[in-house]
Simulated scan of single mutants.
Amino acid sequence: MATSAVRAARRPQISLPELRPFEGQELEPDGDYDGVRFEELDLSGTEGGGATFLDVGMYRCVLDEARLGRLRVIDSVLEAVRGVGTELAGAEFRDVELRDARLGGVRLHGARWNRVLVSGGKIDFLNLRQASLTDVTFEGCVLDEPDFAGAALERVAFRDCAVRRAELREVRLKDVDLRGATELDIASGVDRLAGATINPGQLMELAPAFAAQIGVRVEP
Rank of each mutant, 00 (worst) to 15 (best):
A149F: 03
D42M: 03
M204V: 09
T52C: 10
A162S: 15
E154A: 05
V62C: 07
L178R: 09
L143S: 09
L63M: 09
L126C: 05
E219K: 10
F148P: 12
G120C: 05
A66G: 06
G57S: 11
G120T: 01
E97I: 09
G189L: 03
E97C: 11
K174C: 04
L178E: 07
R67N: 08
L88S: 06
G85A: 06
F22V: 06
F148Y: 12
L103Q: 00
A152L: 15
L78M: 13
F38A: 02
R112P: 05
G121Q: 07
L71K: 01
V163F: 01
F22Q: 01
L19Y: 00
E97R: 13
G45V: 03
L193T: 09
V62A: 12
M1Q: 12
F148R: 08
L128F: 05
V176S: 07
H109F: 15
R172I: 10
S188R: 13
E23W: 06
L133P: 04
T137M: 07
G24H: 05
V218F: 06
R129H: 06
G69N: 12
S188Q: 12
R179D: 10
G195V: 08
L206H: 03
L43F: 01
Q13C: 12
R115W: 01
P220V: 09
A91L: 03
S44V: 02
M58D: 01
S119C: 12
R70H: 10
G201W: 08
R82P: 00
V190S: 03
G189T: 02
R129W: 06
F93E: 04
Y33E: 00
D34N: 11
A187L: 14
D30G: 10
G140M: 13
F38E: 01
F53P: 00
E65A: 09
I14H: 02
P220F: 06
R115F: 01
S76H: 01
V190K: 00
S132C: 11
T134F: 15
R94I: 10
D32V: 13
G57N: 05
E23P: 08
V73N: 00
I74L: 14
E39W: 02
H109G: 09
R72M: 02
Q130M: 07
E23L: 15
E18C: 05
E205V: 11
L16C: 05
G215W: 03
R129G: 15
R94S: 14
V77A: 07
A194Q: 10
A209P: 00
V176M: 07
R20C: 01
F53V: 00
R159T: 12
R67G: 05
R107W: 13
L126I: 08
I123H: 05
D160R: 12
L117H: 07
